[in-house]
Design a binder for these strands. Sequence first.
DNA 1: TATAATGATACTATTATTATATCATTTTAC
DNA 2: GTAAAATGATATAATAATAGTATCATTATA
Lengths: 134, 134
Amino acid sequence: MKLLTRETDYSVRVLCHMAAKGNKQWTAAELYLDLRIPRPFLRRILQMMNKGGLLESRKGRSGGFRLASAPRTIKLADVVRLFQGELRLNECLFKKRICPDRKHCPLRSKIQSIEDYAVKQFEGTTIQSLLQGN
Amino acid sequence: MKLLTRETDYSVRVLCHMAAKGNKQWTAAELYLDLRIPRPFLRRILQMMNKGGLLESRKGRSGGFRLASAPRTIKLADVVRLFQGELRLNECLFKKRICPDRKHCPLRSKIQSIEDYAVKQFEGTTIQSLLQGN
DNA sequence: TATAATGATACTATTATTATATCATTTTAC
DNA sequence: GTAAAATGATATAATAATAGTATCATTATA
């Protein structure tokens, strides 16, 4: 199983790659050459990161993408939220039909505790810290 | 997303239900009446729990299932392992193609830390502790 | 004004999970 | 002995999430 989807994973790579090279502007084509993320997928991700405020974009010829903010202010949690929504490790159990005794379900609190831990990790990780290998 | 699959979830319910009623033997039909887990799915799960050593079974008329060991010795980790294999939250990234720099991937260590925490929770949780609401 | 970029979006493919269905085998009550 | 009631084994279908593709519209500039 995977805690992070590929969209999240690829996006982190993009952000790290950009952050490593200062405040340069990048086209999708350039990023493809460097990172080999499937091209149309990459483009969609870039657009989502733009909409989500992680990147800024310029349209038209000589357009491209750049980081919207400093690497130390971009949290892994932001990327996860953008592509996966709020982390909810309990999801399935309560989706369509209500769990018979949600309140007292002791499994729930275990999962919740793991979820909390994961979110804390994501909140405490920035693009900068990833670049520094922390 | 869900940390536990339905197989795992259902199985925990079955184990807790059994544990709550002493060392009784149960048929799949009885468990269905009590737990309303889809019947063929329930049967398959019971068979897997039997093979996996969580339950014992008796075949033939007046056959059925019972706990293979005391509730305090059955760990949530055992159930997860049986139905989901070793928890591997990193899975996707390294599946088909190798991550370009697995060793140095700082994301990996974050995920690993979350995985370790989750496993610790699972190891520390037993059917008995779930019954007691811990 | 042609070109080279992003924007928007519909579509397809793949995979994992969830669920069903069926027939074989075993045991026992009668 | 044998029918009935249980599990064993296993193939298949349905659903949903993820991953990836394709295409046309729009924008800006060389």
